[in-house]
Design a protein around this nucleic acid. Structure first.
Length: 722
RNA sequence: GCGCCGGUAGCCUAAUGGAUAAGGCUCCUGACUUCGGAUCAGGCGAUUGGGGGUUCGAGUCCCUUCCGGCGCGCCA
């Protein structure tokens, strides 16, 4: 916070001087961080472009401004450098003391920000591609909250799509040998196989994540189904049958009853009951959702509400959105041409779509059903608080508690136990509500969805605009990120580990990376990868334990390191680059990695442990500030202090650009600066009390800063020991 | 065909239009009888795919071209 304030004040002072001395108005004065310490702490290159305007040498302009500007008191001196840069030097001890005082919490704007992320199809286990979505989304949530915004986290559940139906098709119609193989059991009659599947569904609790959960079972079934579709026409026909049943709904049928009915149908050879199929599909989706929550919980990722697509359908969200679109004249019914019989939204007036061959987007098919984009428009309108009924009230869901959860610290795993936080789910009964909780109606909405969804996301945004909500459309933000792909080396590694072959061609394996595919089953399961990561981390800890033996809290340490490695890897890479996943790189704990950062924080904390044991001194206390010697901080200590002061600027910049590599760079700088100081500035052995106090103060600042950036913002735990 | 994203050292990545393009990996040389070597110091290695342009200043903006990826469904 200090640096932001000084920047703003300096910019304002500079603008005033420009006005007074040159009668010139500049409204966006930006002070940058110079590339080199010798060039000051802040810099302004603005005199250079003004040279032409004023017909004066840039250095002369800079000199006048340096002299005439009423600089804030934190600016010690100003120098002119090079062709006309204005280099500002801060009063080190003033900034240092301000930081040691601690920063006040930001207070919010009162408006709510909605972040939608994760959104995994509930038809199979999550893979590392989903992890990128959840980690980016969760990091955004953390940064927004740090900046003082109220944030609501939504995880959209597509429980009525064909993907869930495909798993149900597999359970009911996949040839018994295939299904048994997918389940990993001996071949049996279908009613026994169904019984096995139902047994794996689990209860209505969020389970502890493992690699033998229901989502892992679905992971095996799903690709077998999609692979059989092209080969077997009858089998392929089952998809429509199941989908139809799912859409009709189960009408409150009990799961036991549904299973009994399905098994009875197997024995009697009759057709399956539609309601029973729908009930099974619901159970499959819900069980997968719980597994996904468990996986993300390992990374410290939690949610506020799970909007269900089935509720969007049953509660007429689309019907209402359809009316609004018609009233606004945003859509029209085509009577001829290739889209005959469809309701389309014309995008011809939107600059971004105008050049397209066909700027019309179909929202309602000729058979009367709504497309995915149509549903998404309705959902987006609800998120923005724009889905109103004719009487002006908001068209809303019913809600009930799905689970409650706890998190003992910002980067600890989320535990779905009796906790004080409620995870709500939507329901189709508007009468249901959770006391004290309201959802939707956000001022700004971030949709964390991969870049391949850019086109439909633009359509949704444009629909909001066409309805007359231009400002809301601008605040509908698609947080796009590139996909996660696998390097050929990673593919070979998975094939080796799993013992199966994905049958990729030499041509595919010659490329730099191969796209993951849930349909083909090519991918690294999130839980599987986290297990490997934890095991590797545990080995690394054990290798360093030496003769003292394995620590009691080995699993906990391993988990922290694994999460640190993964979350940092995801945060540090720019979002619009393909993340080519490589095991060796992901499992590296040295260099520019999460564990390096964690180690630096642990190392700093260790200083205070030793200090307490040998001298009875702890971290620097605020009350000691007056005792600090009033000498200028040396360059190397100052570099670390200044980097600490930059946090607020960095977080804001990261959020503005949706680019967490900036935050990663900041925390890496911090760690590097600290390690450089470590050898030259010993604390415990230092006998000079003033010097020791100064070093304690700097390292306390560093340790606190690391705790905030790693745990609170990046969700990376700082372990006690490593 | 149209659109979006990427191309930076042997490899992976960073850099709000600013000063000497910054880290990591690899390789080489060093540093613990002082707070943990998952560390640090040093070295090798790049005219940022090619070509034009705008600018006092371009990896960054514009044009063009080449390479790679992804979109442009009455799929979800």
């Amino acid at each position: 916070m200090p640096l932001t304030t000084i920047r703003e004040r300096s910019a304002a002072a500079l603008a005033a001087a420009l006005q007074a001395e040159f009668d010139h108005t500049v409204d966006d004065i930006f002070l940058e961080i110079p590339p080199n310490r010798e060039m000051g702490d802040l810099a302004w290159p603005g005199a250079l472009p003004l040279a032409r305007v004023f017909k004066k040498a840039p250095r002369a302009i800079a000199e006048t401004l340096a002299e005439k500007t009423l600089w804030p008191e934190e600016i010690d001196r100003v120098e002119i450098a090079g062709p006309g840069f204005l280099n500002l030097y801060l009063n080190r001890s003033a900034i240092f003391r301000q930081l040691l005082e601690g920063s006040k919490r930001e207070h919010g704007t009162g408006s709510k920000t909605i972040v939608e992320h994760t959104n995994i199809n509930p038809n199979k286990a999550s893979h590392i591609g989903h992890l990128r979505n959840s980690v980016l989304g969760d990091t955004l949530v953390r940064c927004q909250r740090h900046l003082g915004h109220e944030v609501e986290v939504q995880n959209y559940i597509d429980d009525t799509g064909v993907q869930v139906a495909d798993v149900v098709v597999g359970i009911l119609y996949l040839p018994e040998p295939d299904l048994a193989a997918a389940l990993g059991i001996e071949i049996a009659r279908r009613d026994d196989l169904i019984e096995h599947v139902v047994g794996a569904l689990g209860g209505d609790q969020v389970p502890h994540a493992s690699t033998t959960d229901f989502d892992d079972l679905s992971w095996e079934i799903y690709p077998r189904v999609t692979n059989l579709y092209p080969e077997d026409e009858d089998f392929a026909g089952r998809r429509a049958e199941v989908l139809h049943a799912v859409e009709a709904g189960c009408d409150g049928m009990d799961l036991d009853e549904a299973v009994f009915s399905l098994k009875g149908s197997v024995i009697s050879g009759e057709a399956f009951s539609e309601r029973a199929i729908a009930r099974l599909a619901g159970a499959v989706a819900e069980s997968n959702v719980r597994c996904h929550l468990a996986t993300m919980a390992r990374l410290g990722v939690a949610y506020d509400v799970l909007p269900h697509e089935s509720d969007i359908l049953h509660l007429g969200f689309w019907t209402r959105a359809f009316e609004l679109l018609k009233e606004a004249g945003a859509i029209r019914l085509e009577s001829d041409g290739k889209n005959s019989g469809c309701w389309v939204m014309s995008l011809a007036d939107s600059p971004e779509f105008a050049d397209m061959e066909d700027p019309d987007k179909i929202l309602v098919r000729s058979n009367g059903t709504v497309t995915y984009t149509g549903k998404d428009i309705a959902y987006q309108l609800w998120k923005l608080g724009l889905l109103t009924d004719p009487d002006g009230t908001l068209h809303d869901f019913g809600y009930q508690s799905f689970a409650t959860w706890e998190q003992s610290a910002p980067a600890e795993p989320v535990r779905y136990v009796e906790g004080r936080h409620t995870l709500a789910r939507t329901t189709s009964s508007r009468a249901q509500a959770i006391s004290g909780l309201v959802f939707g109606n956000g001022r700004t909405v971030f949709n964390v969805i991969d870049v391949r969804q850019s086109y439909p996301q633009k359509v949704v945004k444009e629909a909001v605009r066409i309805l007359g909500y231009s400002a809301e459309a601008d605040r509908s933000i698609h947080f796009a990120y590139e996909m996660v792909a696998l390097t050929p080396a990673a593919i070979r590694e998975i094939e080796k580990r799993s013992g199966k072959s994905f049958g990729l061609t030499d041509e595919q394996m010659a490329k730099a990376y191969v796209e993951m595919s849930g349909r083909k089953g090519i991918g690294v399961k999130a839980d599987e990868f986290l297990d490997i990561l934890e095991a590797t981390a545990a080995d690394a800890v054990a290798a360093r334990a030496g003769e003292s033996g394995l620590p009691d809290d080995l699993p906990r340490r391993a988990r922290s390191i694994a999460v640190g490695a993964l979350r940092y890897l995801m945060a540090k890479q720019s979002r619009n680059r393909v993340l080519a996943f490589d095991f060796d790189e992901a499992l590296a704990f040295e260099g520019d990695t999460g564990p390096y950062l964690q180690y630096s924080a642990v190392r700093a904390n260790k200083i205070f442990d030793k200090l307490r044991a040998r001298r009875g001194e702890g971290p620097f206390e605020r009350t000691e500030i007056p005792e600090l010697a009033d000498t200028e901080l040396p360059d190397d200590l100052w570099a670390l202090v200044l980097e600490c002061a930059r946090r607020h600027d960095v977080v804001r910049q990261a959020v503005d650009n949706l680019e967490f590599s900036l935050l990663a760079g900041h925390v890496h700088n911090l760690a590097q600066l600290f390690h450089k100081l470590y050898h030259g500035h010993p604390v415990v052995p230092e006998e000079d009390e003033n010097l020791r106090r100064l070093r304690r103060a700097v390292f306390t600042l560093f340790a606190d800063e690391m705790k905030i950036v790693l745990e609170e913002l990046l969700g990376i735990p700082v372990p006690e020991e490593m």
